[in-house]
Design a protein around this nucleic acid. Sequence first.
RNA 1: GCGGGCGUAGCUCAACUGGUUAGAGCGCCGGAUUGUGAUUCCGGAGGUUGGGGGUUCAAGUCCCCUCGCUCGCCCCA
Length: 418
Amino acid sequence: MAKLQPVRGTRDIWGDEARRMEHVIRAFIGVAQRFCYSKISTPVFEFAEVFKRSLGEASDVVSKEMYTFTDRGGEEITLRPEYTAGIARAYISEGMQQFGVSKLYGYGPMFRYERPQKGRYRQFHQLDVEVIGAADAGADIEIIALGQQLLEDLGLAGKVELHLNSLGDMDSRKAYRAALVAYFSDHKDKLSDDSKIRLDKNPLRILDSKDRGDRALLGDAPKLSDHMNTASADFIGAVKAGLDALDIAYLQDDHLVRGLDYYCHTAFEFITTELGAQGTVIGGGRYDGLIEQLGGPPTPGVGWAAGIERLAMLLDETPPQVRPIAMVPLGNEAEARALAIAHDLRLRGLAVDTAFRGNIKKRLQRANRINARVAVILGDDELAKGVASLRDLDSGNQREVALDDLVEKLADELAPEN
RNA sequence: GCGGGCGUAGCUCAACUGGUUAGAGCGCCGGAUUGUGAUUCCGGAGGUUGGGGGUUCAAGUCCCCUCGCUCGCCCCA
């Protein structure tokens, strides 16, 4: 640590960036509530076992990206690298199966030990929705629709494309995997080094390789659709029909895959081209095997996670803040008076800023900087007359208003626009 | 974890092939205007050129290490 700085891949979030992220979160809460999802907060750390069991020992996240440490009690603890595993654990811990279908939303920080890039941090923030206990394609359709509405509310729908694929059920997937391994094994000499490793570990991943040589092989590679059983084909068919009915456009993307074993059927990502290699802004899918793998009853689930930073970066502009009333008292008596007036105005629901120090010039400068609509100037002259000077900061017009009427008047005049 | 690029004031950037006291705009602070912002004018503060080491008479500039950012790979949100 050469000088005082945040640790690599973390940063202080304030000013415009904080406002953008807050805007994203507010929009998300609004949409989630419209869809009648319930808030769930799970701990930012869990027993390491929770993630190892749900993500798999061999996954990249577990093998090289987790922040894991031993606490004073000797427990192996991990800062959550994603939301779903913790929610699945909570579902089991809290016995949520008694409630039937659980529709949950949450948001907060995640931690992954990765090389940082734009839109990729070691501490980052995600939005998350999950539907647990519903095997019906309707759940898949609904969460995709939820994501679409979030993007529309944020004004980002035009910058993002929905990519959609099906991984099929376990049987289909197994059959396809075998076919893929057979095909790529025949061409192993032409595969990239990365893909040679994938061939053992995670052959589906070869499909979304960015290596040119790999891509050249994809044309003749077996397609999942040829290995999908009827049930699987019907399922993705139902999802697509549902999206069509809602006018949600999507791109069939045969190369969109998921590495982890418990994923099945629907896989989707909302992708933008504006963030370089970190273009996935919302990613999700169905994970019918997860809860069982964690030790719970066989329970279907589907969900997605969104990167708050990535969404915030895509916003065209920083959302405007409420324009406040600025209190500008001069002198001790006025200061006390202003405090009481500010209190009353805030009780009426108005935004009021107080500066605590500075002469009239300083305070008006501050009022201007925070984009206040009106300044309430209160000095000896005003106090003597029992009035306040109201200065309209857009027009520069100034008038006197009796202190007795002040709160009422401001509430009347400003409330609608606040 | 692998490979490339970049670190100069709070921010955006300048400083010819190494050459004297590292500059500008914006922002900030003060004044013109001791009770009036946003405009205008004047003045000011602010830098161990990310950090450490080396080469040289001389390093912001060249070399090495390190920290951070950034682009790509891996992976993902």
